[in-house]
């Protein structure tokens, strides 16, 4: 290779720096255009976006490890959400059958109790009444406690009659039941009237607990994901200490240095979200057979509700957001410490 002559002009042209004004102008033509700040930021964003993605694909093991942790953390509240959604679907299918249980005074005879039942039957909304005599109530009690037929209970004579009042579930409203209850209490001869909570109502309360649990567990695991991503990004910053130092020394802005780490956190979140989605779907598939058996046994048409498009979007989106936030906190805390 012929050695190049280092004439003053040749070097000047190469470097674009010279005392001559003409050369100055030439050099300025090559400088950055008016819109450059915007386009360069967009360009670097795009580059950081795909380079961090490539970086994670090139290290499948560590990527799988981190997204696995995030995925499990995201899948738990997600699974709980599905559980609640499905319980709600069960609850919707079960008819609400509100009922009142009435205990007569102990002195009220079985015959009087039957008369009372007739009166109550005329009240609005009442569908049917079942009267349990003190004897049959006793039989039931004996059965539950496991007493023999000849064994006497000391207070046997003092047992009341019991009226079980069922309402028409289609037309009755909760406040109507309350009014009927008050009217019954005014009829006299009653010791006490109880509003029975049916299994469905108990299920409804359970669903409420479930909904709150999603909030609590979701918050806890969201903080967990923030910490996981934050810690991962901290390690990434530590391992790229030299690179950050050099970029800062040659004029890289903080935003330029920050960008790849933010995108890295974003990708951790995306992969974690995808894995959570996959885990949840697998769990649903695993459960769908026994659930179908259960539905058949209870004569119900019931399909497991799985993640729809919207909840999948929310799952992966919130996971990506958590990844971004986690790296944002970490970068804010640790990047400032890396100064030349």
């Amino acid at each position: 290779m012929a050695k190049r002559a280092w004439t003053k002009q040749a070097v000047a042209n190469d470097l674009g720096i010279s005392s001559s004004k003409a050369n100055r102008k030439q050099a300025h033509k090559h400088r950055i255009s008016f819109l450059a700040p915007l386009t360069q930021v967009a360009k670097h964003n795009w580059r950081a976006f795909y380079q961090t993605l490539l970086g994670q694909i090139r290290k499948p093991f560590s990527t799988l490890l981190i997204s696995g942790i995030i995925g499990i953390a995201m899948a738990l509240p997600c699974g709980l959400y599905l559980l609640v959604i499905n319980l709600q679907a069960i609850e919707d299918q079960w008819p609400h059958e509100p009922q009142l249980t009435l205990f007569t005074h102990k002195k009220v005879s079985y015959f009087e109790a039957q008369n009372l039942a007739k009166k109550i039957n005329n009240l609005p909304g009442v569908k049917s009444i079942k009267v349990l005599s003190p004897g049959s109530a006793m039989e039931e009690y004996r059965h539950i406690v496991g007493l023999g037929k000849n064994e006497l209970l000391p207070e046997q004579k003092l047992l009341p009659s019991i009226l079980i009042i069922a309402f028409d579930s289609q037309s009755i409203k909760p406040d109507m039941i309350k009014r009927v209850k008050e009217k019954i209490e005014h009829l006299g001869q009653t010791e006490s009237v109880h509003l029975d909570q049916t299994a469905v109502e108990k299920l409804y309360k359970l669903i409420e607990i479930g909904e709150r649990s999603i909030l609590v567990i979701g918050t806890i695991f969201a903080v967990g994901v923030l910490l996981i991503v934050g810690g991962t990004i901290r390690l990434e910053i530590q391992s790229k200490h030299n690179e950050i130092l050099v970029i800062k020394l040659i004029g890289g802005t903080n935003a330029y240095v920050r960008r790849p780490f933010l995108y890295s956190g974003f990708w951790h979140g995306i992969f974690g979200g995808l894995l959570a989605w996959l885990l949840t779907l697998t769990a649903v598939m695993f459960l769908s057979n026994p659930v179908a058996d259960f539905a058949q046994l209870s004569n119900k048409i019931f399909n497991l509700v799985t993640l729809d498009m919207q909840s999948t979007g929310i799952l992966i989106g919130s996971s990506a957001l958590l990844g971004l936030l986690g790296s944002w906190f970490s970068v804010g805390r640790h990047l400032a410490k890396v100064e030349p």
């Binding site: 030299n242 050099v246 040659i250 890289g252 802005t253």
Partner: peptide
């Protein structure tokens, strides 16, 4: 502090241990 990066772009800096990135 925010403008330091732009200031450094006006200077070509050379270091004893050259600070090249080996990746």
């Amino acid at each position: 502090k925010r403008k330091i990066a732009y200031h450094r772009r006006k200077i070509g800096m050379i270091f004893q241990n050259n600070l090249l990135l080996d990746n």
